[in-house]
């Protein structure tokens, strides 16, 4: 019987792309790996994340105790919440009086475990902090007048409690910032059809991601109302994609006239 000491590898690299071609990429990868190993907190675990979203995030998971910032897309923010909610976590929403509850349910959020505080008023920070104490993921629209000290206080509260903040808008200490661009709706024509599916480009930048923002194509949602990645087109550091691009569904062009 041989005793071997297994080096604990952080699980965050399980889904990282294997082929590394350029030196810059290799350096970035190694740096990220060092950072992962240097992580000092014990409780820094990943939350269950839906597969379409996992690809976007640094490390491939939604991290407990971190903050993420999503720009200009409530659907994308709801998709971030869907994974933890489907796995049984409670979610809270602060300061979104116009949230489409049906869209939340369609994204995969269990409404039985969703709590809304649409009008926190002046007490945004207190309400968000109190919710973060008990729920796993908080989706919130931060007010413009939030001081750096308040951001830091909420950040440490989140780390302590291990709950995740998804900020709809700018958040200074975010783990990753997700922006939606190049909105393309399918199914709607010139006076006919209906909005059936949407394909967007999500650009992800963050503290742990160096260099240019990572860009991914995403169905948000597809015709089956499922959020899923739409091929690997548009990886900026590589001129030609090395892997074959999975065929994107073309049925919209046919289905457009309905």
């Amino acid at each position: 019987m041989s005793l071997s000491v297994a080096t604990p590898r952080p699980p965050v690299f399980a889904g990282a792309p294997a082929p590394v071609e350029t030196a810059a990429n290799q350096v970035a990868e190694l740096q990220a790996r060092i950072r992962g190993m240097q992580r000092t907190r014990i409780d820094s675990h990943g939350l269950p994340t839906s597969p379409g979203i996992a690809e976007l995030l640094p490390g491939g998971v939604l991290r407990a105790g971190a903050a993420y910032s999503v720009h200009e897309s409530t659907s994308l923010a709801l998709a971030l919440l869907a994974g933890p909610s489907a796995a049984g976590a409670w979610c809270g929403v602060v300061g979104l009086p116009a949230l489409g509850v049906e869209a939340a349910a369609a994204a995969g959020i269990d409404l039985d475990r969703l709590v809304l505080v649409p009008e926190p008023g002046e007490q945004w920070l207190q309400v968000t902090a109190a919710l973060a104490d008990v729920v796993t993921v908080v989706l919130a629209r931060p007010p413009a007048s939030l001081s750096a000290a308040e951001v830091a206080r909420l950040g440490s509260r989140l780390r302590q409690r291990g709950s995740t903040l998804v900020a709809l808008g700018e958040w200074p200490q975010s783990e990753a910032t997700l922006r939606v661009s190049d909105d393309r709706w399918m199914g709607l024509g010139d006076g006919h059809g209906f909005l059936a599916a949407r394909r967007v480009t999500v650009s992800v930048s963050g503290r742990t991601l160096t260099g240019k923002p990572r860009r991914k194509q995403l169905w948000l949602p597809d015709t089956e109302q499922v959020v899923r990645p739409a091929g690997l087109a548009g990886v900026p550091t590589r001129p030609v994609p090395a892997q074959p691009v999975p065929a994107t569904p073309v049925r919209f062009d046919e289905a457009a006239v309905s």
Binding site: V101, A105, L111, L114, L116, V117, Q123, V127, L131, V135
Partner: peptide, 23 residues
Amino acid sequence: RIHSGLSRVQSMVGHTGVLTARI
């Protein structure tokens, strides 16, 4: 824990400030 946490939020923003949703 959820109940006690939400009761705290309710005491800040009022009874109708903390909502659950149905379709």
